[in-house]
Design a protein around this nucleic acid. Sequence first.
DNA 1: ACCAGTTCCCAACAAAGGTTAAGGATACGA
DNA 2: TCGTATCCTTAACCTTTGTTGGGAACTGGT
Lengths: 243, 243
Amino acid sequence: MERETVLASLLRRLNTVSKLDQADIAAIRSLPVAVRHWEGGRAIVSDGERPTECCLIIEGFCIRSKTTERGGRQILSIHIPGEIPDLQSLHLQVMDHDLITLVPSTLGFISHTSLRALTHTQPNVAEVFWRDTLIDAAIFREWIVNVGQRPAPARLAHTVLELRRRLALTERAEPAVFEFPLTQEQIGEALGITPVHANRIIKQLRQDGIVDVSRGRVHVLDETKLAELAQFDDRYLHQDPSA
Amino acid sequence: MERETVLASLLRRLNTVSKLDQADIAAIRSLPVAVRHWEGGRAIVSDGERPTECCLIIEGFCIRSKTTERGGRQILSIHIPGEIPDLQSLHLQVMDHDLITLVPSTLGFISHTSLRALTHTQPNVAEVFWRDTLIDAAIFREWIVNVGQRPAPARLAHTVLELRRRLALTERAEPAVFEFPLTQEQIGEALGITPVHANRIIKQLRQDGIVDVSRGRVHVLDETKLAELAQFDDRYLHQDPSA
DNA sequence: ACCAGTTCCCAACAAAGGTTAAGGATACGA
DNA sequence: TCGTATCCTTAACCTTTGTTGGGAACTGGT
């Protein structure tokens, strides 16, 4: 795979969310990236492990999740190409959650060693990466609000709109139809509800002509009603570098 | 107030959670800190604002929270002396949530300017601060699990044990009785339940002889039962610098 | 075309949690 | 010490969500 395309979405994203100068871009471009393909539904790193590299999603979808001792699983975030979902492992040596592919994916592995060398020689890149992990945390905060405050249908609506907005960063569009490769069971795990209840609310939203979530895709049926249900305000994504 | 005591708990905490050398400690000690007293229940920074300084809690308790358009409030975290709950504002210019005192507190304000100067001259301090925000994010992840997966009594038990463990970092003890200055309404906002339900579960836990949460304090009645209910595993707090 | 394994779908019932409304305790200032 | 505000407490009732269990539809492999 071309080096260009491997880092393209990462650079596009970082350069939108922060400010990179030519030296930063060149330095990131020269990072050694080991490209590997991964099946769907397979762990990349697991809770308790001490990874020595970070994982850039080049193509595909991943989730982060934690499993409780009672066997329940909570999905913490959904990740898309251009993101480095385990960037925190650079300074948090032991994983406190799992990182798992949802679908067959192309991943780029970058060693902690070379990332640390990069952040030491390019302090501006260090700050851009730091900011990236802060946005990650901001998304967790909103996820807490989602699970803690919103009724189940609004939770799904919000999750769907957040993902679309984040996809728009690298894809430059907010389409009415887009990929959302979670089973109903996984949707339940993301929203903190059972799969049966996930099925109920999906059916409801479909019948109400608001949104159709099925076969791994989202069809937005009524943009206005969906936005009203989700009360989605993208400020927390901090996509504007001056904000 | 003595400079020593102003930064004492911050330094103790950072030095436990990460590794600081003498130069780092000296550099942090020389930070200009503006000490101010704050009433309880008053905002320090609010959603939408662009703060120019960060806030160190010297004495007291604070929370971070978000308010939804429907009027519900979700408490995202509880903060104690030695913590800088809005450190993220250093690289996320616009606040996406509120920071509020719970009780009358002594706060130390440190300008972004001097913090940036510090992180530029002492890259190791930058990494320690970065790591601190990553631990903050790890706590958010566990909070998502708490609200999304655990039944209400276990949520309260977990929250209580987490706070005690974090207090132990600067106080070096895990007492059976400690301060927990949240009203039942605020407990509900933290756990994603109504105040009425918060009251129900508090009463339940008291009657079951597990824990008594009242008048702003926690009394642990049965350490074993409480631990079993909460399924508390402190790995996610990353208090050990090698982990 | 068939099979096994998922995933989706649905119904009936149970439990957890939300709503409303009201009385009682506590703290604090005049 | 009296009031006022806040907080705690409880009850009755209602809604959402969980549980159990089953069947239908789809998928990928042979």
